[in-house]
């Protein structure tokens, strides 16, 4: 049997070696990995505007976002069905299309889902752009889909009780349900004539996006469990439509290499002459 301090020494040495190896390899100490942004890949040709099952979607990597029950303001809810949403997006320079997917054990007429965006330059609170006490916030644009109509409603809000359907309806949506999973596509033009109400998407720029889901199940008394503010919500995350490829950085790098070579040539020539 080894003496205790000899064993301690070995344990400490082993631990130190592991830490040194991790530090040298740049290994992160936390292994949790979650998405922070949805990226709309630029494609040429047709977008799957009303087809949640199109083959084009399989070429896009999904981003996954955790959901919470809405506990920020009354009426609250303590538990919701949907725990995560998976989001993909594509654009063709004119239109953008999102695919929102989530697990829901039952298909109900009152199932619903929404995308939310900040509008304009001012930050907006993720809870319907409710007023902030020390910061002047902006409005939010909400794309709301419901199973009953299988259509989108284009909405605006700036604070609780201000949610309203817009006069101009610019968003399309279609959902399909199979194998315990909803797949919903939302589409719209990247930009339009209503910048005060609608999010304007400029390729290459990050904007804020959030998600909400209502499971339309009913309790034993026949009442809807998730309705109105009682829903699953996410925080703000990021969305970006990819910009067309830009090769100017390669040109700048080539110029820099040429300048560095020229500098070396002049320096060495000068040194040789000096000697």
């Amino acid at each position: 049997m080894k003496p205790v301090n000899e064993m301690m020494k070995q344990v400490l040495l082993g631990g130190a070696a592991v830490i040194v190896a991790m530090v040298l390899c740049g290994a992160p100490f936390s292994f949790a990995q979650e998405s922070v942004a949805v990226r709309a890949t630029l494609v040429t040709g047709g977008l799957p505007l009303d087809d949640p099952n199109a083959a084009a979607w399989s070429s896009v990597a999904p981003a996954s976002f955790p959901m919470s029950p809405q506990v920020h303001w009354p009426n609250r809810i303590q538990e919701v069905t949907v725990k995560d949403v998976s989001v993909r997006a594509l654009h063709d320079g004119k239109q953008v299309v999102f695919l929102l997917e989530y697990a829901d054990p039952t298909q109900d007429p009152d199932d619903g889902a929404a995308l939310e965006f900040m509008v304009g330059d001012k930050k907006a609170h993720f809870a319907h752009g409710q007023p902030m006490l020390q910061v002047e916030g902006g409005p939010v644009n909400i794309w709301f889909w419901k199973n009953k109509t299988n259509k989108a409603v284009d909405m605006s809000a700036k604070g609780f009780g201000t949610l309203k359907q817009q006069v101009h309806q610019d968003v399309n949506a279609k959902g399909t349900y199979s194998n315990g999973k909803w797949k919903i596509v939302f589409s719209r033009n990247l930009s339009n004539e209503h910048p005060d109400e609608d999010v304007q998407i400029t390729p290459g720029q990050f904007i804020n996006i959030a998600f909400a889901v209502w499971d339309g199940r009913k309790d034993a008394a026949g009442e809807l469990v998730e309705k109105g503010s009682q829903k699953a919500v996410s925080s703000w995350w990021y969305f970006r439509a990819d910009a067309p490829p830009d090769y100017s950085s390669y040109m700048y790098a080539a110029v820099a290499v040429a300048l560095a070579l020229g500098f070396q040539f002049v320096l060495i020539r000068k040194l040789k002459k000096g000697q």
Binding site: H72, H125, P131, M132, Q134, S235
Partner: peptide, 16 residues
Amino acid sequence: GVGLPIEGAPWRSAMP
């Protein structure tokens, strides 16, 4: 959350 000053990013906080 909504009572935070701008450097506290009040638009992100879910604190009632």
